[in-house]
């Protein structure tokens, strides 16, 4: 079978790619996509480290709860993106630098 390190390398790569996307992209939806990628990388690590302790299942349970929180985050985040776009007519996060007009 395949060694655990290969899972961990993939998780590290996905997390770094998500970080680069969050920093580099100039669009709020792309930033949300990067955050989803980072959450999935952490999920992959949780599932993988669960294999180190074969009697317990807590890693998989934690991955399940991470998925629940990711859903809430995506829904509320996109609602905020749509509201901000209607108000400021822009989806560039750096152009929104005031809480109030």
């Amino acid at each position: 079978m395949f060694p655990i390190a290969h899972f961990l390398y993939l998780g590290a790569f996905l997390f770094s790619a998500g970080l680069v996307i969050v920093i580099v992209k100039k669009n709020m939806i792309m930033v949300l996509l990067g955050i989803e990628l980072m959450l999935n990388a952490s999920n992959l690590n949780l599932v993988t480290f669960n294999q180190l302790y074969p009697d317990s299942i807590q890693g998989q349970m934690f991955a399940l709860f991470v998925i629940i929180v990711a859903v809430s985050e995506a829904a509320v985040g996109l609602a905020i993106v749509i509201k901000v776009y209607h108000y400021y007519q822009t989806s560039v996060p750096d152009e929104i630098n005031e809480l109030k007009d």
């Binding site: 590290a12 790569f13 997390f15 770094s16 790619a17 970080l19 680069v20 920093i23 580099v24 992209k25 100039k26 669009n27 792309m30 560039v92 750096d94």
Partner: peptide, 17 residues
């Protein structure tokens, strides 16, 4: 989508990786 902070973003990602 435009890109910004390309150098620092790549640097942060590569160093973390």
């Amino acid at each position: 989508v435009e890109h910004m902070y390309e150098l620092s973003g790549t640097l942060a990602g590569l160093s973390l990786l």
